[in-house]
Computed example of a mutant assay.
Amino acid sequence: MRLCSLLILTFFTTMSCKNTGPSAEDQKMAQLDPVQTEAVDGYERAYFASGCFWCVEAVFESVKGVKEAVSGYSGGTIKNPTYKQVSYGKTNHAEAVAVFYDPKVISFRNLVLVFFGSQDPTTLNRQGPDRGRQYRSIAFYQNSDQKKIIEDIIAELNETVYDDQIVTQVLPFQKFWQAEGYHQNYERNNPKDPYIQGVSIPRLNRFKKQFPELLKDNAH
């Protein structure tokens, strides 16, 4: 069960991260050149963080053109991070997903819209009941075109929806570390988990209601 499950929400509310702004490590990473990944069998990769990776993985896997989403860690510099290290805030990594997608079916821009449309990008270091920098919102870019797409969408949403309150970080992608095997497809494999019932499924359903045109046929 997640360390930030509903059963121990009160504990994590009192233990929320004290450093509410970008860390020194964030600031250093923001100055790095992005790493461009190569397509695999025609599928490109995009990387996002917006809270519980169980939730984010399920959202992206419901989208047309997405082959799969893989849960993992990104945004920090520690090599081979573990779930225990990340969950306890021992690293600067955030829970993240790698999205394998067919650019002929869905564009990077639409993936960014999915990213913003499936979270609250105005809650600093928090998403739903999960609190701490490991749950912060990050859109990773691999080149200048992706960075511009992300920044343009943020500007548009700040003007039309969020009144300049978006706190999502925009960082150059460096490295993605795949999470332990039991985290992969967790929502699908553990439908009776209290966290899945109380947080992940409602979050997925809210996204489906907002973006029905982007859903795979079997995701409706």
Rank of each mutant, 00 (worst) to 15 (best):
M1D: 12
R2Q: 13
L3W: 04
C4M: 12
S5F: 10
L6N: 14
T10A: 07
F11C: 05
C17Y: 08
C17S: 12
C17E: 13
P22N: 03
P34Q: 13
Q36S: 12
T37H: 02
E38Q: 14
A39T: 10
V40T: 15
V40Q: 12
A46R: 11
A46V: 09
F48V: 11
F48I: 04
S50T: 13
C52K: 02
W54A: 05
W54M: 00
C55I: 14
A58F: 01
K64N: 08
V66P: 01
A69G: 01
G76Q: 06
K79A: 15
N80V: 05
N80L: 02
Y83S: 01
Q85G: 02
Q85Y: 04
G89R: 03
G89A: 02
T91C: 04
V99Q: 08
F100A: 11
L111V: 11
V112S: 06
V114W: 08
V114T: 13
F115H: 06
G117Y: 02
S118T: 15
S118Q: 07
Q119D: 10
T123K: 09
L124K: 12
Q127V: 01
R133Y: 02
Y135C: 12
Y135S: 03
F140M: 12
S144V: 02
D145W: 03
K147I: 10
I149M: 05
L157H: 02
L157Y: 09
V161A: 05
Y162Q: 06
I166N: 10
V167F: 09
V167G: 07
F173D: 03
W177V: 07
Q178L: 04
Q178G: 06
Q178M: 11
E180D: 03
Y182V: 06
H183P: 03
P191K: 04
P191V: 00
G198S: 11
G198Q: 12
G198D: 05
P202T: 12
P202G: 14
R203H: 11
N205Y: 11
R206C: 00
R206G: 01
K208L: 04
L215D: 06
